[in-house]
């Protein structure tokens, strides 16, 4: 069953809208078994949610910028980085937080409407946190690929001839 769970997770990770009935046929289970499995995986926090990958740069009415911020912090006794991480990730404008190896500690992804918004967040909210030593902000200029999906309009075009032996 473990193997089928991984197969199911991989399918859903690629396409969250795949129907249980379809999945069932693909991995040779019944629809009920698939639904039970999904419920179980949700309960076990293996499935954390379902989201849609939007290519916002194709939505012309929408304004938004993303920045990746390298944050150096002083780890605190007994809680290490977890405490400061949780203080950072609770801000709604923070979309992702990772603890990193290497030159800095936290990698923080922030979204705002404008560069001003993001700068304000960094200077007023982030860098003023107690244990934060320094921040380096990098603005994203263009998204080429996100979560395994290439953001190009003709990348998935079928380039094969229509009928072949």
């Amino acid at each position: 069953m473990e193997e089928k769970e991984i197969e199911l997770l991989k399918l859903l990770e690629k396409n969250g809208r795949l129907e249980s009935e379809t999945i069932a046929k693909m991995i040779e289970l019944t629809t009920e078994q698939v639904e039970e499995m999904i419920a179980k995986l949700e309960k076990e926090n293996k499935i954390m949610g379902y989201s849609t990958l939007v290519n916002w740069s194709n939505v012309y009415e929408y304004e938004g910028v993303t920045a990746m911020i390298d944050v150096k912090v002083t780890p605190m006794r007994s809680v290490g980085f977890d405490n400061i991480a949780s203080r950072v990730y609770r801000f709604p404008e923070v979309k992702a937080v990772y603890l990193m190896s290497g030159a800095y500690d936290l990698s923080v992804s922030v979204e705002g409407k404008t560069m001003m918004d993001v700068s304000r967040f960094v200077s007023e909210k982030l860098s003023t946190l107690d244990t934060v030593i320094s921040t380096t902000t990098h603005f994203v200029l263009k998204k080429y690929k996100h979560d395994g999906i290439i953001f190009s309009d003709d990348d998935d075009k079928d380039k094969r001839i229509m009928v072949s032996p």
Partner: peptide, 26 residues
């Protein structure tokens, strides 16, 4: 001539065709 050729000619003139006639990986 291969019987496949005829189908290729027919199908490639039409729009909105889903092809299950391709003998190679996607």
């Amino acid at each position: 001539p291969s019987g496949i050729r005829k189908f290729f000619d027919l199908a490639s003139k039409m729009d909105n065709v889903i092809s299950l006639g391709v003998g190679e990986p996607d």
